[in-house]
């Protein structure tokens, strides 16, 4: 075997240990691999579990401090509204397919979350939507729409369901009512901030163009107003929708393979398009 003399080690310095600002584990006296106490941003997990809600804990985990009453209420309201994307959503359908076809139960959620990872109405749209909101908050929504529509006219490939900006656009050729209803409620809450307010104004002006809030945009505005980092947005969005995905997948896993449609031969067409 020849040695590869042309390959040299860089001798970069790698850390001796992984590091974190989130979580401290103190060992038990007799076993250094077992934690006796855990602290989340300095607070003892034993105390947290007895005194705060799951939503407050989630906020603490990502922001490093506990939310105030208004912030916690805003996050909880959004999480309730987002808990289930419903049985027609592609990610839910992926979970249902996995369930009815008897995939391992522990695979249902990862399968659904991977499907939810896309940048069209999926988790990967939320971060750009947060950046879009941050960038345009000081501009007039009408002026932003004019500019974006002008740019859209220059694109020839836009056909159906245009997302004029990440998180805002059309679904099935229309304005999706639910995120627009939810946005009105959330924007009226004391914990709401500039992103929800600007987004509502932007969405109202988009109505003339048959567009509005998309669910990803609403999530982005809530996360932005709560001060979450854009890089956390995709994962937070996946977390918020996860319960509904699992529930629908598990429901189908108790059924027969024939309990979901299998497209008939006469409805399956092969068209090579040339």
């Amino acid at each position: 075997m020849e040695n590869n003399k042309d390959v040299e080690r860089r001798n970069e310095t790698y850390a001796d240990k992984a590091s974190t600002k989130i979580w401290l584990e103190t060992p038990s006296n007799d076993n250094p691999y077992l934690a006796e106490h855990c602290y989340c941003h300095g607070y003892d997990l034993n105390e947290l579990m007895q005194n705060i809600s799951f939503v407050e804990m989630l906020y603490l985990l990502f922001r490093g401090e506990l939310p105030n009453k208004d912030e916690a209420k805003l996050l909880e309201m959004f999480m309730v509204s987002a808990i289930n994307p419903g049985p027609r959503h592609a990610a839910t359908r992926a979970a249902m397919n996995a369930g009815v076809s008897k995939s391992n139960s522990s695979h249902i959620l990862p399968i659904a979350l991977m499907t939810l990872g896309g940048d069209h109405l999926g988790a990967a749209e939320v971060e750009p939507a947060m950046r879009f909101l941050r960038k345009h908050l000081k501009q007039s929504p009408a002026a932003v729409i004019d500019t974006l529509l002008m740019q859209l006219d220059e694109k020839s490939d836009a056909v159906n369901d245009v997302h004029l900006a990440p998180g805002f656009g059309a679904r099935f050729n229309g304005v999706d009512p639910l995120p627009n209803q939810f946005a009105q409620h959330l924007a009226s809450m004391p914990g709401a901030g500039k992103s929800l307010a600007w987004g509502c104004e932007f969405a109202a002006k988009l109505k003339d163009h048959h567009m509005g809030w998309l669910h990803t945009g609403l999530a982005a505005a809530v996360f932005a107003d709560l001060g979450f980092q854009p890089r956390a947005a995709a994962g937070l969005y996946q977390l918020c929708l996860a319960p509904g995905l699992v529930a629908h997948g598990v429901e189908q896993s108790n059924k027969k393979l024939t309990d979901m449609p299998f497209i008939k031969d006469e409805n399956y067409f092969i068209d090579y398009e040339d």
């Binding site: 974190t20 600002k21 060992p27 250094p32 300095g42």
Partner: peptide
Amino acid sequence: RCDDVQYQGKAPR
């Protein structure tokens, strides 16, 4: 081990 992860956050409070 617990101390194989370096904690850089807030002290217990």
